[in-house]
C-alpha cells in the first residue's frame, strides 16, 4: 500500500483508528489526573525501576502527558510530533513491563489504565505492542491519518 493510492475507505479506517487511540488516552489520562497522584505513584513503585524522586515526578507528569498526547491525536494537531511522542511513550511502557516480567516482580495487576479497567501485565504488554503497531502505521501513512485534522485545516489556511 503506497500513500498515493489510498482509498476513501482506508482513509476512514485511519481516521477511526486515530480517534479511538486518541480517545482512549484522553480517558486514561483524565482518570489518572483526577485521582490522587499517590494511587499512580504506587503503581510506578511496583515496577522498581526509577529512583524515589523520579517516581514522584513521573506520578505527577505521566497522566498529563497521556492526556495531552491523546487530546492532540484526537484533534489531529501537530500529528507528526504527537505520533513520535506516542511511539516513545509506548516503547517505554513495553520496556518497563518487560523488565518487570523478566525480574518476576510481584505485580498482581498492571494499574496502567488507572481506574478505567484492570488487566494483568501480560495482557497489558500485548495491548501495548498492538498500540505501538497502530501508531507506527499511522506515522507511516500520515496522509490518511491527517484526514479531518486540525493540521489539515491549518495547512489549508496557510495556502
Amino acid at each position: 500500500m503506497s500513500e498515493g493510492k489510498i482509498s476513501k475507505f482506508t482513509t476512514y479506517k485511519f481516521l477511526v483508528l486515530r480517534l479511538i487511540i486518541g480517545g482512549f488516552f484522553i480517558a486514561v489520562g483524565l482518570d489518572k489526573v483526577l485521582e490522587p497522584h499517590q494511587n499512580f505513584l504506587y503503581v510506578i513503585q511496583g515496577y522498581q525501576i526509577f529512583p524515589e524522586l523520579l517516581e514522584n515526578i513521573a506520578a505527577y507528569v505521566f497522566p498529563w502527558i497521556e492526556l495531552f498526547l491523546g487530546l492532540f491525536l484526537f484533534l489531529g494537531l501537530w500529528l507528526k510530533w504527537i505520533l513520535r511522542g506516542f511511539l516513545l511513550m509506548i516503547s517505554a511502557f513495553i520496556l518497563i513491563i518487560s523488565q518487570a516480567l523478566v525480574r518476576k516482580l510481584p505485580i498482581e495487576f498492571c494499574g496502567c489504565f488507572g481506574g478505567l479497567f484492570s488487566s494483568d501485565i501480560h495482557q497489558t504488554l500485548i495491548l501495548d505492542v498492538f498500540l505501538w503497531l497502530f501508531v507506527f502505521l499511522m506515522m507511516r501513512f500520515i496522509a490518511p491519518t491527517s484526514f479531518l485534522s486540525l493540521d489539515k485545516y491549518f495547512s489549508r489556511q496557510e495556502k
Binding site: E35, P36, Q38, N39, L41, Y42, Q45, G46, G111, G115
Partner: peptide, 17 residues
Amino acid sequence: KVVSTPSYFVNHEMCVG
C-alpha cells in the same frame, strides 16, 4: 479515592503502599 491496598492516611495525608 482509595483504589488499591494498602492505602494510608497519615495525619489526613494519603500515601499508598
